[in-house]
Simulated scan of single mutants.
Amino acid sequence: MIEPNPEPRLCHFKGMGGPCDLAVFGAPDSLLERLRSEVVRLEQRYSRYLPDSLVSDINRKAGTVQSVDAECAGLLNYAEHCYRLSDGVFDVTAGALRRAWDFRRQRIPSPAEIAAARAAVGWERVEWNGEQLRLEPGMELDFGGIVKEFAADRLVALITEAGYRGMANLAGDIAVTGPQADGRPWMLSVRDPQGTNQAMASVALNKGGLASSGDYERGFTHKGVRYSHILNPHTGWPVSDAPRAVTVIADHCIMAGSLATIAMLKGKDAESWLVKLEVPFLLCDAAMNVSGTLVTP
């Protein structure tokens, strides 16, 4: 018999570049520690910021044929799917564009710098057969657009396998095993892209995952022009007329995250693209108008 309004056990830590929160009903310490260890494992394998990660090793060996394990192959296959779904704007080789753009210093690169960075971008130039990979010299992979969401899905899979219910929140990318123990949905706050302490919206999540993408983290304004850190790999420049933020709910967090990011990359066509896909979403445009199927009347 389920007790009335049971409270989950909470666990807070840092990982994947931000704050992480776990909420698991009845979880023993051993499960919470296993979940934390899984986040560490995935970050150590797929972070481009760690010199000894698998991704860093793959990038160092660009120009050679490399075999990868099943987990990495799954991520590469999903990345290829996103590339085709997005008409080439979601590209895990586009991280090379950061060689030109420095959003921390709010510096606009020269056309020559952008051209040099773009020369190392293009999934269509990657040789991938499902087991072996070859990047052209100078190219590199960046799983930053999918690995955090993949990790959230992995955690709820482990929670489910252990026979518990819960939620994993990895810096705003969220996955749940299902409703809470008493049948209530998880009530989640969607961040205000202007950085205020108030939420842009509150969303109920009963299953799957929720993820957001936006330019509130690293974008900047120069001479009245807003430069989003969401870069179009076809041009090397920030996406023009991009929304300030997009939030999507999908069957899995990795799906929600990639759809939100692709929508940002679609610029002015973001909302019509999401409507066509018939996915639940919220969109905040440049004028801070909020629209989408998740808007509460």
Rank of each mutant, 00 (worst) to 15 (best):
V24R: 08
E43S: 10
E3R: 15
T247N: 01
P243I: 02
V156H: 09
V176L: 12
E7A: 12
V225F: 01
R104H: 12
N77F: 02
G267M: 12
I114A: 05
L210E: 09
G166K: 10
T64Q: 13
Q44W: 05
T64D: 11
N169A: 09
T261L: 01
A70Q: 15
G122I: 06
H81C: 11
V279G: 11
A171S: 13
C284R: 01
E124M: 07
R84T: 02
Y46Q: 05
E217A: 12
E161D: 14
T160M: 11
C11Q: 09
N129K: 06
L265C: 08
S240M: 05
G15S: 10
V248K: 00
S213F: 01
T177I: 13
G214D: 04
I174Y: 07
R104E: 14
P111G: 05
E217K: 04
E271A: 10
W101H: 04
A100I: 07
V246T: 04
A70Y: 06
E127V: 01
F150K: 06
G267V: 08
K268R: 12
C11Y: 04
A201S: 06
K266E: 11
D153P: 14
T196F: 01
P233N: 03
V176C: 07
E71C: 07
A117C: 11
V126Y: 03
E71N: 09
G145H: 00
D102R: 08
V225Y: 01
